[in-house]
Design a protein around this nucleic acid. Structure first.
Length: 920
RNA sequence: AGGACUAUAGCUCAGUUGGUUAGAGCGCUACCUUGACAUGGUAGAGGUCCCCAGUUCGAAUCUGGGUAGUCCUACCA
């Protein structure tokens, strides 16, 4: 083995081996465990959020697989309708073409080509993370099977009246030319203006002032509204005003929706272009004038002068024209929430169109109940509130998208506009007895990508066929996801699955935090603060990183900023840390918080941890290979052996509990502490005195070697779900020595412990040894005694137990603290001038002769005594408080008394010692 | 506007049912290349647990109020 750990060469080797051997596929077993991957965008690439999420799922999957479950991790991708279509359209644009130049069929072919070309990127990256996904069952939302499921669901829900077509206001993206759901609209505060316009009263005497943030929409006004109880304006209700520019008379209506305090207290009503106005319009039976076309340019429904103008151009013209007419009263600065499309970034228009909807209200009932009654539970629990809040106020879901890439809606129209829903044109004709002479036209639209994702847990398993896989693996065990898609996906999956299968899609929803950069900023391409997990695994030099982050920027000045920030944050680029270190970093950050700040410092620490593991294994192999490791022959286990075996089991119990609770931060910490602070720091050191002592017996040496390899082999298995590669690589060499055979660590049992090997006697002995060693080391360090210098140590006080411990442990003690001699100072013997440390009642004396500076030791003792005194007075205060002694539980009081006793003892010992030193 | 969450060491974070002398990693200081590992070892320094009140024998932990920050939902034209 090499002296330092180099992850690169072992990772690809092992992944390939696992995959080709088919180890990722379900292998049978009584109990099933399954996770459906949240399908990433097929043409996308891996980001830190994916990395985090996949790491957690892989740990769960590997853990359960090793526990013997019939384990499936279903892999697949979704077709990401809008995002993918946009990419391909942009490519066409570069050739000066639009999708309309190609036509629907050829365009869709192009998208498939793009999918073939780029679709492998993310799946290759998933492999780099070590994800043990069952690739043999890979699915894609546009596959024939899944497409059939989508169609089946659409038809079924339509027939049940749960899908309907209607004309409503939708969120219209004028750049992408499609409706989007309200979840895909991001509203943010932006600076704007509030224009006050005068609308002349139809009678000719005076005017009414309305305030608006969107002057251009006045061309579509069909009323103005005041609050019915507003004394200033109520008398206008029922009268009319002349709408300027359009030269139409519109009524003044009274509606409680109007806020008297805001603006002028009078609102213009534009039912076709505002969600609130739409409702007002419906209440009052107002006309709806649609003044825009699909590009959000002014349509023919508006006065001639404005037709064909872009909405923002029209705004300028309207304001200018109103001003020219003397009808512009004033303009105020005003900040308002502007809705923008999350993909296109352009301002979204409320727009009146025909769309398909899912009646979400009906589906929501059972979906709420499933969480209320515990069929599904969220971890952490608080997310259930988020879920309920949304579900109880759910809006119908607009599922049609005016795109070409996606599942085309299986609906046909005849000339009269009748709707026929069915699997294909022929079956529609047959069902409704429509002869060939009647022309039928299929709906042009496709379904929202989330519609197909909502079926993911069962469509991937072969539904609508009742496959064996469906029976075995559905409902899935747990869904691992971020809170940002609870509405988009989680809620919709629950609704759809309950309705169509009458069972939940998963029993648990584990909601993890979102990965942010070191400053807590959301990682986004436009901010240029994204990190590619692969770059953390392989490393990347500064120039390449800068280039990667600034490539394809829309605004060059932004590129400069990102360039600078990147150079500041990663002056040396990023080192290569390997997959295991990256994964372990993710786990260590997976607490219950909502944000996960990714600090590059953390991963370096875990890279070092990998190296520690590597070298610990190196030590074990060097001492055990070609040696008798206890396979045959008599074996004696020493205290250290018995202790570490007990600690191993305790760690196993702890780790299992934390995984059960989805606390990967605690699980990873427990492993880290056991491996580094107990196995490496103590046990390996304690093994040396035995293995390197000529006098030690063969049975004893065999016992130590056996413990070394068996404990190592066990914790490799324990660690494997978190660090798959390094554990496999080392396990291959260690397992035979431990008497374990098998092709791969992946399929070995996880070392579940029951605590029976806990050995209190050994634990106490090692505890004793550790405190004596630490006491001696502290004196050495604080007295500046060189580590290389051998010293003598005297022990005093203590009881028989201490004497026994010393007898058992003196070799350990001598070796680990470099002692020439350790001996017992019996009663009555003259105590030499010495530096002192305490281990319980036991005094540890390091004679000063030539080693120890008197003043330094006095200072040290005074400091110790000071600490003890303040501690004692605190305890004393407690115990003198009558109500504490009376009311606190007796065991707590007893504990305080014990503490006082031992502290007093320690204090008097140190005080005596101080006095003695002072006399020298 | 409503709701949620967060506030603990210089930084990133743990802290179970209140019983703590408040922990870890990174960073920092000193010493050490000893035969697994300097991606290392040993020993240290470092905290008004955001503030104020309350409950309690006892509060980082529970309750109320405040401050600061983050987010979600709904929005006033």
């Amino acid at each position: 083995m090499e002296k330092t750990f180099h992850p690169a060469d072992i990772e690809s080797r092992w992944y390939q081996e696992w995959e080709t051997q088919g180890y990722f596929a379900p292998a049978g077993g009584d109990k099933a465990y399954s996770i459906m991957i949240p399908p990433p965008n097929v043409t996308g690439s891996l980001h830190m959020g994916h990395g985090f999420q996949e790491a957690i799922m892989d740990a769960l999957i590997r853990y359960h697989r090793m526990l013997g479950y019939n384990t499936l991790w279903q892999v697949g991708t979704d077709h990401a309708g809008i995002a993918t279509q946009m990419v391909v359209e942009r490519q066409l644009e570069a050739e000066g073409l639009s999708r309309h130049d190609l036509g629907r069929e050829r365009f869709v072919d192009k998208v498939w080509e793009w999918k073939e070309q780029s679709g492998g990127t993310i799946t290759q990256q998933l492999r780099r993370l070590g994800s043990s996904l069952d690739w043999s069952r890979e699915r894609f939302t546009m596959d024939p099977g899944l497409s059939a499921a989508v169609q089946e669901v659409f038809i079924r829900l339509y027939r049940e009246g749960l899908i309907y077509r209607g004309q409503r206001l939708v969120n219209w993206d004028p750049a992408l030319h499609t409706a989007i759901s309200d979840l895909e609209v991001i509203s943010e505060e932006e600076k704007g203006f509030l224009w006050h316009f005068r609308y002349p009263l139809a009678g000719g005497e005076g005017y009414v002032t309305v305030a608006t943030t969107r002057p251009e929409t006045m061309l579509g006004d069909t009323a103005i509204a005041v609050h019915p109880e507003d004394e200033r304006f109520a008398h206008y209700i029922g009268r009319h005003v002349m709408l300027p520019l359009a030269e139409r008379e519109i009524p003044v209506i009274g509606d409680e929706y109007v806020d008297r305090e805001f603006g002028s207290g009078v609102v213009k009503i534009t039912p076709a272009h505002d969600f609130n106005d739409y409702e007002v319009g419906r209440r009052h039976g107002l006309a709806m004038i649609n003044i825009f076309d699909d590009d959000a340019q002014i349509s023919d429904a508006a006065p001639q002068a404005y037709r064909g103008l872009d909405r923002f151009e029209a705004r300028k013209r309207v304001v200018a024209d109103m001003e020219a007419l003397g009808l512009l009263e004033k303009v105020e600065d005003h900040s308002l929430k502007v809705p923008r499309g999350d993909r296109s970034g352009v301002v979204i228009e409320p727009y009146l169109t025909d769309q398909w909807y899912v009646d979400a209200r009906k589906l929501a009932g059972p979906a709420i109940a499933a969480v209320e009654n515990g069929d599904i539970s969220f971890v952490p629990r608080q997310w259930e509130n988020t879920y309920f809040a949304w579900m109880r106020d759910i809006q119908d879901w607009c599922i049609s998208r005016q795109l070409w890439w996606g599942h085309r809606i299986p609906a046909w129209y005849d000339e009269a506009g009748n709707i026929y829903v069915g699997a294909d044109e022929a079956s529609v004709r047959a069902e409704h007895a429509i002869d060939a002479a009647t022309e039928l036209r299929q709906d042009e639209d496709v379904l929202d990508t989330w519609f197909s994702s909502a079926l993911w847990t069962f469509s991937t398993l072969g539904w609508p066929q009742e496959t064996p896989e469906l029976k075995t693996f559905h409902p899935s065990s747990v869904l691992v996801t971020g809170f940002d898609i609870i509405f988009f996906w989680v809620a919709r999956m629950i609704m759809m699955t309950l309705h169509l299968r009458d069972e939940v899609p998963f029993h648990t929803v584990y909601v993890h935090g979102l990965v942010r950069d070191a400053e807590g900023q959301k990682m986004s391409k436009s901010k240029g603060n994204v990190l590619d997990p692969i770059d953390l695994i392989d490393g990347i030099d500064l120039e390449t990183l800068v280039q990667k982050r600034t490539a394809g920027m829309m605004q060059p000045q932004l590129a400069k900023k990102i360039d600078k920030a990147t150079r500041r944050q990663f002056p040396e680029g990023i080192a290569s840390y390997g997959t295991d270190a990256l994964r372990f970093t993710y786990y260590s950050l997976a607490s219950t918080g909502r944000d996960i700040k990714f600090d590059i410092g953390r991963i370096e620490g875990y890279r070092n941890f990998c190296n520690k593991i590597w070298n610990a294994a190196r030590y074990v192999l060097m001492n055990c290979q070609d040696q008798d490791c206890g396979a045959g022959g008599e074996v004696t286990l020493g205290l250290a052996d018995r202790w570490i075996i007990g600690r191993l089991d305790a760690t196993s119990i702890e780790v299992a509990r934390h995984i059960q609770d989805y606390r990967f931060d605690l699980a990873s910490q427990a492993l880290y502490e056991f491996i580094w602070n107990e196995y490496c720091d103590w046990y390996l050191e304690l093994s040396k005195p035995v293995l390197w002592d000529e006098a030690a017996g063969d049975a004893e040496k065999r016992g130590t070697r056996r413990t070394l390899v068996q404990v190592l082999e066990a914790w490799l298995r324990m660690l494997h779900p978190l660090m798959p590669f390094i554990t496999e690589e080392i396990w291959q060499s260690v397992a035979p020595l431990a008497g374990v055979s098998g092709a791969t660590i992946m399929l070995q049992p996880w070392p579940l412990a029951d605590g029976e090997r806990h050995d209190p006697d050994a634990a106490q002995a090692i505890d004793w040894l550790q405190s004596v060693i630490v006491g001696i080391r502290t004196i050495r360090a604080e007295m500046n005694i060189p580590p290389s210098r051998e010293i003598d140590v005297l022990l005093r006080g203590g009881d028989e137990q201490d004497e026994k411990r010393l007898a058992e442990n003196s070799q350990y003690l001598k070796k680990l603290t470099k002692l020439a001699r350790v001996s017992w100072l019996s009663e009555g013997n003259e105590t030499p001038a010495a530096a002192t440390a305490l281990a319980g009642d036991l005094e540890i004396l390091v004679p000063m002769a030539g080693l120890i500076d008197k003043d330094a030791e006095i200072a040290r003792l005074e400091k110790e005594i000071g600490k003890l005194r303040s501690d004692l007075s605190r305890i004393q205060g407690k115990l003198e408080n009558a109500s504490f002694v009376d009311r606190a539980p007796p065991e707590v009081v007893a504990k305080e008394r014990e503490k006082r006793q031992s502290q007093e003892q320690a204090l008097s010992t140190l005080q005596e010692q101080l006095a003695r030193i002072r006399t020298i």
